[in-house]
Every structure is written in structure tokens, then in C-alpha cells.
Design a protein around this nucleic acid. Structure first.
Lengths: 218, 218
DNA sequence: TCCTAATCGATAAATATTTATCGATATAAA
DNA sequence: TTTATATCGATAAATATTTATCGATTAGGA
């Protein structure tokens, strides 16, 4: 079911790589030039072997006794994660969450930008948020095709999400970052990545209760 | 490293349970009364055995031929995920993301509420967002103790996150939902759940590139 | 009433991921 | 120059997770 193509990088590793990258960027800014798996692991609450195995998948090579050259390691991560090419996205749904994402500056660090936002509400159409124009959603298909945008962000309510996704895909979008708490039904070709904040908060809640009310009573 | 307590529910399952819950709630609203693993799996892009195994961990019991009684299943999930008790949270950092979370209505569906927000900026202190007061951060410790709030949300910039987390913990917070892109160093007792939006977007990017530029050239 | 088909629950197999171990090697100190 | 040691890379072991299989059971139709 869904995409059966074998990923070159296991998903658990892929989830950790960007976090390593963030940490390593900060270390580089502090002036660190060489770094070992052990120190990375310590900072991130992991074990060294795991970090080593993850980093091996980026093609980076370290050296005995001193570890990795930080600069080389960052470059390897950038190549692996695709930060070395500019990526433009279109966002749909300029509610409070959509606005928050439009304000987010950090995406730029990874060569990712939101080119424009779309909505159906007259209240926001015509405004600009952090320099990005908010356009009427009916213009999405033509603009998407014209600018060859392949990435979409869905920030509309759950009820509207499937329809927005359908229009996105028929307009040429090939990868969707979905903040609506529903499972989108789309062709297997389309990459969907769900960001389900409520579900995520729910995990925190359960982890807490597991630890504090002991094991399930039975 | 970190918490070594064995979780009763495997993390991958725990991540899926709230998503089942969301889907099942919608089905219930549509008037569905009985539901099978096969149909749930189909809707969510999973396989039936996996859904069955996940649901078994909630204690719900299904019946041959008809599947689960939806009402019973929802109750089992609510018990398992802790939605059956009210949870109050404090949020720190009322930037655009913090505001977006304060506006989020869906947390209420799970009996989770943000009781108040805190910031150091005079621009927001004293305002109300969706009925929740924004208070000066210096009042956090006393209020936190007084109201016995155990859950904190961190929406401040990365540079300030560790300090905010420290103050949270010393004020009695026991579980933190962290939106800052850094790994917090805190006592093992404290549950931390990271919501790293940039890292997450990065995963989408990589999945896309993996599928479209084929396998790593080598 | 009897038969068929759909479904669960349990067990087992397969696969994926994490963790341990160990030899080789380069750096830095003696 | 020699030696001690931190580290990597590779391989192997352990663990966790997903997927397959199969018997038992129940609803619904013949």
C-alpha cells in the first residue's frame, strides 16, 4: 500500500539527519572545526554508534582520533538532504498557522522559501506577510504551472484539505506538507508528509501519563 | 541514554493511535457504528494486521465478521491516550507560532487546554489571545506552582529555549512540548517532545528528491 | 437450519533498526 | 622515535517492528 520504493536512507535515520545538521551548524558558528560521533551523540542524547552509522549514509568520512572535519560533514549533509538547491513552495490557508509559517525565517537557512500564499478569504487576499503576497486561491493552478512550483503546504481546515490537495496535484504539485489532521488520498506519485500537531501533543501526554501513573493497571 | 523505562506501547504504535482516533471520530460523526481493521487500514494507507495489532494494545475487543463497535473503540482510545482527564498547559513565547497555537481550537477536543501564555515583550504582555491572557514571563514560576501546571510549551527562539526550559523545570513543569530547534538538556524525569518544523520539512524535501532524482548516483 | 464469507486474535516469520564489539589507524604526548 | 589512546569503519549480535498465516467465530443469506 502506498509507495513501495525502497528508500536509500532508512526513515529513522532521515529524521535524525536534519537535527544533526542543526546542531552541527551551531557548533560551526561557535568555531568548532573537528567533531566526533561521541560528542554529537552526547549533545543529542543518543549513542555514538548510532550517530556514526547515520553519518556514514551521508558519505562523510571521519578520521581516527579526531573524528570528522565539521566543514566536510556539513557539506555532506547538505548534499544528502538537498539543501544545495533552492526549493520554492506555495502555501494554502492563511489562518494563524499559515501566517506563522509565512513568518518563519529559518526555512531560508535550508534554501527553502515560500514563494506565495493563497486563501479564499477577502480579509487576507491582497495583503503581504513577511514580504510574501497572499493571492486568491483560484489563481493557484495557473501560477503553479507557470512557476513550476512542486511543493505545497496545506494549512486549511480538515474539511477543505482533500479538495485543496486535489487541486494542488492537478496543478503540478508533487510533494505536500499537510497540517490538516486527515489522511489525504492522493496518487502514489505524490509525496505527502503529515504534520499533525494535535496527534503530536497527544504523544507527549501519553508519555507523561505512562511515566507518572505507572504501567496500565490490570 | 535518557529514559530507559520500557514503554508499554511501542513508540511507532503510539504515534499512530491519535491518528486512528481522529479518523474514527470523523467516522462516528458520519453515523458509522461498527468498523473493521481493514477499512481503517484502507483509509489510512496501512495494512489491516498492523491496525489490528495497534488496537489490541488499547484493550478494545472486536468481533468476527463485524469488527469493532466504534463507540467502544473510541472509549478505549480515550482511556489509552489520556483524553479522559483535563490537561492544562502553559505556553512561553508569543511570537507568530505561539499565537498560532493559542488560536488552535482542536486541542480542546482532547481535553487539553492552554491556560495562559508568557512572554518578555511588552508588546504582547497584557493582551489576550483567544481568551488566554499573555503574562510577563517572570510570573511563570509562581503561577505554575500555584496552579500545579505540569505541561509547558516552548515557542521561543533557539537561543532562549534552554533557559526557559530550565526555569520551567524548576517551577514544576514535568513535560515539555518544544518547538525550538535544539536538543534540550534536562533531567531524565522530564518528558520532552520535540516539534522541529524545519527538520520535518527537510524530510519532505529529501523524500521528494529520493523519488525524483532516483537513487544516489554512485 | 446450514453454509459461506468476513473478521478477529494469536502465533510465527520476515524485516528493519539499534547496539555491541573489535581491528586498524592517525594524532599527540613521552 | 616510540607509545598510548581516541576514534572510525566494518561486521556481528540483539532487539524491535512489521507482515504473514491460520484457526475460531459470528452474521447474514441460501
Amino acid at each position: 500500500m502506498g509507495d513501495k520504493r525502497i528508500p536509500q536512507i532508512p526513515l529513522p535515520t532521515l529524521k535524525r539527519l536534519p537535527v544533526y545538521y542543526q546542531y552541527l551548524t551551531r557548533q560551526a558558528r561557535k568555531g568548532v572545526t573537528d567533531i566526533s560521533c561521541a560528542s554529537i551523540a552526547k549533545a543529542m542524547g543518543l549513542v555514538a554508534v548510532q550517530v556514526r552509522k547515520d553519518l556514514q549514509l551521508t558519505g562523510a568520512v571521519g578520521r581516527p582520533k579526531t573524528g570528522y572535519r565539521l566543514k566536510e560533514l556539513l557539506e555532506a549533509l547538505e548534499r544528502t538532504l538537498g539543501y544545495d538547491n533552492k526549493t520554492e513552495m506555495f502555501l494554502v490557508g492563511v489562518g494563524s498557522l499559515g501566517k506563522a509559517l509565512l513568518h518563519y525565517r529559518r526555512f531560508g537557512d535550508y534554501n527553502i522559501g515560500i514563494a506565495a500564499a493563497f486563501d479564499v478569504s477577502e480579509d487576507v487576499i491582497g495583503t503581504e506577510i513577511d514580504g510574501k503576497p497572499v493571492l486568491p486561491f483560484r489563481k493557484f493552478p495557473s501560477l503553479c504551472r507557470r512557476l513550476h512550483v512542486k511543493f505545497g503546504i496545506i494549512c486549511v481546515p480538515a474539511e477543505a484539505a482533500q479538495e485543496v490537495a486535489n487541486i494542488m496535484v492537478s496543478s503540478g504539485i508533487e510533494a505536500i506538507w499537510n497540517f490538516a489532521p486527515i489522511t489525504l488520498e492522493l496518487p502514489d506519485m505524490v509525496i505527502v508528509h503529515n504534520e499533525n500537531l494535535t496527534a503530536s501533543l497527544s504523544i507527549l501526554l501519553k508519555k507523561y501519563k505512562t511515566q507518572h501513573t505507572g504501567s496500565e493497571r490490570e
